[in-house]
Design a protein around this nucleic acid. Structure first.
Length: 493
RNA sequence: GGGCCGCUAGCUCAGUAGGUAGAGCAACGCCCUUUUAAGGCGUGGGUCGAAGGUUCGAAUCCUUCGCGGCUCACCA
């Protein structure tokens, strides 16, 4: 039982004295913030305000209680003469964390504190769990919740005790809202794609599995990416579509990875990846301006300038810039030697494309602080992308990096159905011998997807944007757990 | 899996020349009708994460285990 004995007794006492500590509604005048903002209009006027008790100062037959609502707080003054015997009995039963409603006039005390002089008090929710409410003044914190486990596992306590912790989730909501507005104002249609799929694809990741009872326990997977669904929209005649959805990947958990995470993907017919780089930087810049007020932000002490245009750098050039080597023209043995010295794992049998990708990840990613589009990856890294014009062995793909984090992934989408089929086959063959690019079992062949492309898919630029990473960036959050309301945690015990 | 840190009252934490546990807040009682970390006096409350060991004696030293956090590795 999570309940606190003494608080339970107080609840009982209230019920015994004929008070329902969990009533049905409360008519409120306005948010507290409005009283503070329009004080002159409220002074000496009756208001009716609900809030959670965050501080209590009892003084004989008077009592001062601070109550808090979503984004402000205000002092309430209880005087026995004003609230009467019955009201006073309730005031004496109050605890930190209780939610109450008060009716009374707005005034300023001798010490000039904006206050509601209560004439009526109503309990709206009696706490039965003791919540660790922070003690602090304007400039000093006397104590506050420090246990990071409680912060993430019992998020409601985190939010109750640290109102500023709510702010990141508010910003998250606004980022998603602004993102949606940007897409819609550019003529995109928001669509919904299935979470449960018989065949997963569109990314390289281990999926979560479950089964469907109604279909003889047919095995199904939780989507790892909405890509293949969205391309079917394009084939079907929707030229500009996007979706914001949860993806599920049964892999590592760390400060930038949660097993379920939010992605936006969009597909735009008749465009290529060059066009989408512009769209991407414009989107991120606009969202930043509309949520933080600026296109220049600070992340973990570093100034980041999101103003377009961002730097464009091919993967091979990035390796050259940070390592001084021309990896394309190096003999196999030299590349292996280079990798060995830096403890970079190169798979056997040797494959130049995969080696380039590994070397890039190990030596360049964390150095890409200012917004940079890394482009033109080796062909082996994705079977869904068109070949790079004029550069055999490479593809038209880009990944935007900011503060060393990969923020998204985009292609000039492969639209030749025969080549698409061959590329998927080749990937599966490679998968049978070496378990794919990164040790994962290779995705199953989606023949229906190949058929869809065969029905005629216009040239298309497709982009994925990691919403959680973007929120981390714009809220200056070190861990993805800070900006996911309920991150997956190991079970207690 | 490696490294580091933590686990003591309801909450936040003190507590090593090893001597059977403390503070603040919360709770309970009394005083106090404009306080703001309100104040004053008093009371109750802990098998010190678990199990072994060393010792006359362990929250404290040793061993093992459990739980958690951070971090590195792995993994998109």
């Amino acid at each position: 039982m999570p309940f606190h004995k003494e608080l339970l007794e107080k609840r009982e006492n209230l019920i015994k004295s004929g008070i329902n500590p969990y009533p049905y509604s409360f008519e409120q005048s306005c948010p507290i913030k409005k009283i503070r903002a329009e004080e002159a209009g409220f002074l000496d006027k009756q208001v009716s305000i609900p809030g959670r008790i965050v501080a209590q100062r009892i003084q004989g037959k008077a009592s001062f209680v601070d109550i808090e609502d979503f984004d402000d707080h205000i002092q309430v003054y209880f005087k026995k003469d004003h609230v009467g015997e019955a009201g006073w009995n309730i005031v004496m039963q109050l605890d930190l964390g209780d939610i109450i409603g008060v009716r009374g006039k707005v005034f300023r005390t001798r010490t000039n504190e904006l206050t509601i002089s209560a004439e009526e008090i109503q309990i709206l929710a009696k706490t039965t769990v003791q919540v660790p409410i922070s003690k602090k003044t304007e400039d000093k914190v006397f104590y506050q919740l420090a246990d990071p486990e409680i912060k993430y596992r019992e998020r409601y306590i985190h939010w109750i005790t640290e109102p500023q912790a709510r702010q990141k989730l508010v910003t998250r909501a606004r980022i998603i809202s602004e993102t949606r507005k940007f897409m819609e104002s550019n003529g995109f249609l928001e669509v919904t794609t299935p979470t449960l799929e018989m065949i997963y694809g569109g990314a390289e990741a281990t999926p979560f599995e479950t089964n469907v009872k109604a279909l003889s326990n047919q095995k199904v997977f939780l989507r790892i990416s909405p890509e293949l669904s969205l391309k079917r929209f394009i084939v079907g005649g929707f030229p500009k579509v996007f979706t914001i959805c949860q993806n599920f990947r049964n892999e590592g958990i760390d400060r930038s990875h949660n097993p379920e995470f939010t992605m936006m993907e969009w597909y735009e017919a008749y465009t290529d990846y060059e066009f989408q780089m512009k769209r991407f930087e414009e989107l991120v810049f606009t969202v930043s301006v509309n949520t933080t007020g600026s296109g220049k932000i600070t992340y973990q002490g570093r100034e980041i300038d999101l103003t377009p245009p961002w730097r464009r750098l091919t993967m091979v050039d990035a390796i050259k810039e940070f390592n001084g080597i021309e990896v394309e023209s190096m003999p196999e043995e030299e590349i292996k030697d280079f990798a060995r010295k830096r403890e970079i794992d190169i798979q056997e049998p040797f494959n130049l494309g995969l080696a380039i990708d590994e070397i890039f990840k190990a030596t360049c990613e964390d150095k890409l602080i200012q917004p940079t589009f890394i482009m033109d990856h080796p062909m082996e890294t994705s079977p869904l992308t068109k070949a790079k014009r004029g550069k055999p062995g490479f593809i038209e793909r880009f990944e935007p990096f900011i503060v060393g984090m990969e923020m998204g992934n985009a292609y000039s989408e492969l639209t030749d159905p025969v080549e698409q089929h061959e590329r998927l086959c080749r990937q599966r063959q490679a998968g049978q011998s070496q378990k794919g690019e990164s040790g994962h079992p290779v995705n199953p062949m989606d023949m229906d997807f190949v058929k869809a492309i065969g029905c005629g898919m216009p040239p298309t630029g497709g982009v994925g944007l990691g919403i959680d990473r973007l929120v981390m960036l714009l809220t200056d959050s070190h861990s993805i757990r800070e900006i996911i309301a309920f991150p997956l945690m190991k079970p207690k015990q």
